[in-house]
Simulated assay, not measured.
Amino acid sequence: MYTREPFTLPLPAMVDFVRARSFGVLATYHDGTVHTSPLPVDLRGSEEAGLFVAGHVARANGMTAAFEAGAPATVTVMGPDSYVPAEWFGTRGRIPTWIYCAVEISGRLEVSDPARTRADVVDLIDRLQGQTVEGSTWSLDEMPPELTEGYLRNIVGYRLHDLRISSCFRLNQRKADSDRLAEVLAASDDTVRRELARLVLDPPTAGTA
């Protein structure tokens, strides 16, 4: 990912962003083919103990060959974004642009055995249930065993190790008219643009400290 220091988040903020979103696109290259898959992203571990990504894809997905080969791969997690016309800066003398938020995680793929795949699926569901439904106690154990086992047979788990994590939160930093841009975004009926208004006024990037 191309980025610059003013657009880069500190590592703890990148980890928090990925865990809050928990969805991205996994891309890898194997045997002459580029494979991509949108899927849940479970960033686990800690900066001190080591970070890794756990996940899974359908067994029928051709990407699974890259897991066996230990191929390099990249996960891109996108946040809010918007096209910005010149008029939103209160002028016709600026080139239109795009503001966006993204974190990229690169590493080495490793296939998971069935036991670890199941454990990773359970951990992911438990975390997302807790984030999404307050007080949820639902678990995979409530499913009929034959349905759960059938589902697990039809997926292949993976982990992504030796991570390199980068970010680009391009939010009009170090340019004029951010207040004007944020005012226009905040007045939008679009919830994504209203979220961007807050970020433009207070970018979470390292270069703004």
Rank of each mutant, 00 (worst) to 15 (best):
E195A: 15
A49C: 03
Y151L: 13
E48I: 12
A187H: 05
A65G: 15
A115E: 13
L140E: 05
R4M: 12
A71H: 03
P80E: 13
T191M: 10
P6E: 15
W88K: 06
M78A: 11
T137A: 15
D31H: 07
D189C: 01
A58H: 08
T8E: 15
D81V: 07
V121D: 00
L26V: 12
R108W: 02
P144N: 14
S22E: 09
R194G: 01
R159H: 11
P80Y: 05
V53A: 02
R116H: 07
G130Y: 04
I95L: 14
V133K: 06
A54H: 03
D81H: 15
T91N: 05
W88Y: 13
D189S: 11
E134G: 10
A176L: 09
V133H: 10
A49Y: 02
V41A: 06
W98L: 13
A71K: 01
D81G: 09
A20V: 06
E146Q: 12
L43E: 03
L199E: 13
W98N: 06
S166I: 13
D162A: 11
E142S: 14
R118K: 06
V103D: 02
E47H: 02
P72W: 03
A176S: 14
G62F: 03
V192F: 03
G157C: 02
A176D: 12
G24S: 07
G150L: 03
E87R: 13
A182Q: 02
L9Y: 06
P85D: 15
G24D: 05
D141I: 07
D113C: 04
G55H: 04
V34A: 14
S167R: 08
A176H: 08
A27K: 01
P10W: 09
T191S: 14
V103I: 10
V25N: 03
L26H: 08
T64S: 08
T148P: 00
R153V: 05
P145C: 11
A27I: 12
A206V: 07
M14V: 07
G90S: 06
V75P: 00
E104K: 07
F7C: 09
E5F: 11
T3Y: 08
A102D: 09
L196K: 01
L147Y: 13
P85S: 15
T3N: 06
T64W: 00
T97Y: 02
R19Q: 12
D202C: 07
P10K: 14
S166E: 14
R170P: 05
R127S: 08
K175G: 05
P12V: 10
R198H: 11
A54M: 05
G130F: 03
R193P: 00
T137P: 04
G62D: 06
C168S: 15
R94E: 14
L185A: 04
S106F: 06
H56D: 05
P85Q: 13
T137N: 08
V15N: 00
P6T: 09
E146S: 10
G135W: 04
D141M: 08
L152G: 02
